[in-house]
């Protein structure tokens, strides 16, 4: 992986962010705004699966409403996160344990959300209200919290 991280830092994107006074801060602010959106879009569905919000609406209805915001915020996260990563790819993130853990949590959260949680939420109504769905919701909150905490941890490591 180290050649990739070195290439990324010396790429046009990495050097552009590095040479700008405000680019890093601006992408960071955008990343934080997308985090707020992802928080709401993930949480509202997980809370519904737990039966703690909108109990009169079907799980699938809440998940359908949240879906464009979930996908939009994930896209915004990548669009703002990749320039941040590129700027210090090898000189910081490659050796940063919190960054590494964040990437593991992110991969797990994305796979779990789109291959498990969305299927349960948008699928059969009985299953979407079952104990399995509640366990899925708890797992989703834990995985995404891991991404957030490790993301904040990058700066402290």
């Amino acid at each position: 992986m180290s050649p990739f991280f070195q290439w990324l830092e010396h790429s046009w994107l990495g050097t552009s962010v590095n040479n700008s006074l405000w680019a890093f801060a601006a992408f960071e602010a955008g990343h934080l705004l997308a985090l707020a959106v992802i928080g709401g879009a993930v949480l509202v569905v997980d809370l519904r699966m737990l039966g703690w919000v909108f109990p009169r609406q079907r799980v699938a209805e809440v998940a359908t409403e949240a879906r464009p915001w979930l996908i939009g915020s994930v896209v915004a996260m990548f669009l703002t996160g990749i320039p941040l990563m590129a700027s210090l790819a090898f000189s910081k993130y490659y050796f940063n344990e919190a960054f590494r853990l964040k990437m593991y949590f992110l991969a797990a959260a994305l796979l779990f959300t789109f291959f498990v949680r969305q299927r349960v939420a948008l699928g059969d109504d009985v299953r979407a209200n079952s104990m399995v769905a509640k366990a899925v919701a708890v797992m989703s909150v834990l995985l995404w919290s891991g991404v957030g905490v490790m993301g904040r941890g990058i700066g402290f490591y």
Binding site: L35, G39, G40, A41, G148, R152
Partner: peptide, 21 residues
């Protein structure tokens, strides 16, 4: 400090994310 700041960021998701809806 790091723990409190992490709580601040995670509760931001909960507060602003749901307020946005």
């Amino acid at each position: 400090y790091p723990v409190v700041e992490s709580v601040h960021v995670l509760s931001l998701c909960m507060f602003i994310g749901l307020l946005l809806l």
